[in-house]
């Protein structure tokens, strides 16, 4: 059974200079206990998609529509996230779905101690008394591996390092063991050695609390480490979908291929780096036809005229490209 079921999600932003389509008809589903990653460069709509799942986009300026936008909670109830009132969403968030963000310092309140901020989760959602909540808070801080939690609980966010702050956010997000954890670039702001710690912690928490994970990242190495299934997004559309092994070892879309090639291989020494020409098109100025056509090495006449459909092989492998799709089906 799917925890998250999104069909044909479209997100439109009203800006001063016109309307911008940030997400153009995206289908995403996350199964129970599954770890799904959305990969793409900045501006491809991956963060907006994840924020929409939590209904954290203010509307206006964001407008979203979808054919299906369902979240299934632990008791099996189907919640249509589009029609939920803000109050109903408040009860869903944290209890059933929670989110970790890229930059932990902007999501912690600088004038409240770490302990108070973690207590709030229990006070608000479990109607606990502050003292009782603090016991759970300390317990939770131990679970995410914070040394000396009693002392840390009385500190303010600025006294903690980036890695510790991210652990606090993970504690906050997972303290009510939600069904779905959304992680939006959780390690981008951290050092490599801390990144390894945090990724391991997220993996452990998901396993222990039987959470599904929706991970947003631009780092293919993180994808290989964390995910079971991958969506590759480009300019608001999904261009490729499949299991991690399929996508990273046998990419079919030229964009996915190029992304993988730009990461230099550790086993050989290259003289030059593989580069993708040009930049990601501006969302108000996307090319006609396939959005990747102006950067694509295999671009044909057809690509510049008509948007390719998302070809489905039938086993969860999908590619949005005209180029040699026949080969794809034959494997």
């Amino acid at each position: 059974m799917n925890v998250l079921d999104i069909k044909n999600l479209k997100i439109l932003f009203r800006t001063g200079e016109g309307f911008v389509r940030a997400v153009e008809g995206v289908d995403i589903h996350v199964g129970e206990g599954e770890r799904v990653a959305i990969v793409g460069e900045s501006g491809c709509g991956k963060s907006v998609t994840s924020l929409a799942c939590m209904r954290l986009l203010q509307s206006p300026p964001a407008y979203y529509t979808a054919d299906t936008f369902d979240f299934v909670s632990r008791d099996g109830t189907r919640h249509n996230l589009l029609t939920k009132s803000e109050n109903e969403m408040l009860t869903l968030r944290a209890r059933e779905m929670a989110m970790i963000f890229q930059d932990p310092s902007t999501f912690l309140n600088p004038v409240m101690t770490i302990g108070e901020q973690l207590d709030e989760v229990f006070i608000y959602h479990k109607n606990m008394k502050p003292k009782e909540a603090r016991v759970h808070t300390i317990e939770m801080m131990k679970k995410v591996g914070i040394p000396d939690p009693e002392m840390r609980a009385n500190q303010y966010p600025h006294e903690l390092s980036g890695g510790l702050k991210q652990r606090i956010l993970i504690a906050m997000a997972t303290s009510l063991s939600p069904r779905l954890l959304i992680a939006d670039e959780p390690t981008t702001a951290l050092d490599v050695t801390i990144q390894a710690q945090i990724l391991r912690l997220i993996g452990e928490r998901c396993e222990k609390e039987k959470m599904s994970l929706l991970m947003i990242t631009h780092d293919l190495g993180v994808v290989r480490e964390m995910a079971d299934r991958v969506y590759v997004m480009y300019c608001g559309k999904i261009v490729e979908e499949g299991t991690v092994d399929e996508i990273l070892s046998h990419p079919k879309h030229p964009y996915t291929k190029a992304l993988i090639d730009t990461v230099p291989d550790m086993n050989t020494k290259t003289e030059r780096f593989v580069q993708i020409p040009h930049n990601v098109p501006h969302p108000m100025n996307k090319p006609k036809g396939c959005y990747f056509s102006n950067r694509c090495a295999y671009c044909t006449e057809l690509c510049t005229q008509k948007q390719p459909p998302l070809y489905d092989r039938g086993d969860g492998r999908k590619v949005r490209c005209y180029y040699k799709t026949e080969e794809l089906w034959e494997k």
């Binding site: 490599v192 050695t193 990144q195 390894a196 780092d219 293919l220 190495g221 993180v222 994808v223 290989r224 480490e225 990273l248 070892s249 993988i260 990461v263 291989d265 550790m266």
Partner: peptide, 9 residues
């Protein structure tokens, strides 16, 4: 540091 490198393949 080297073991913390996440490789794609």
């Amino acid at each position: 540091l080297m073991s913390a490198i996440l490789e794609v393949n």
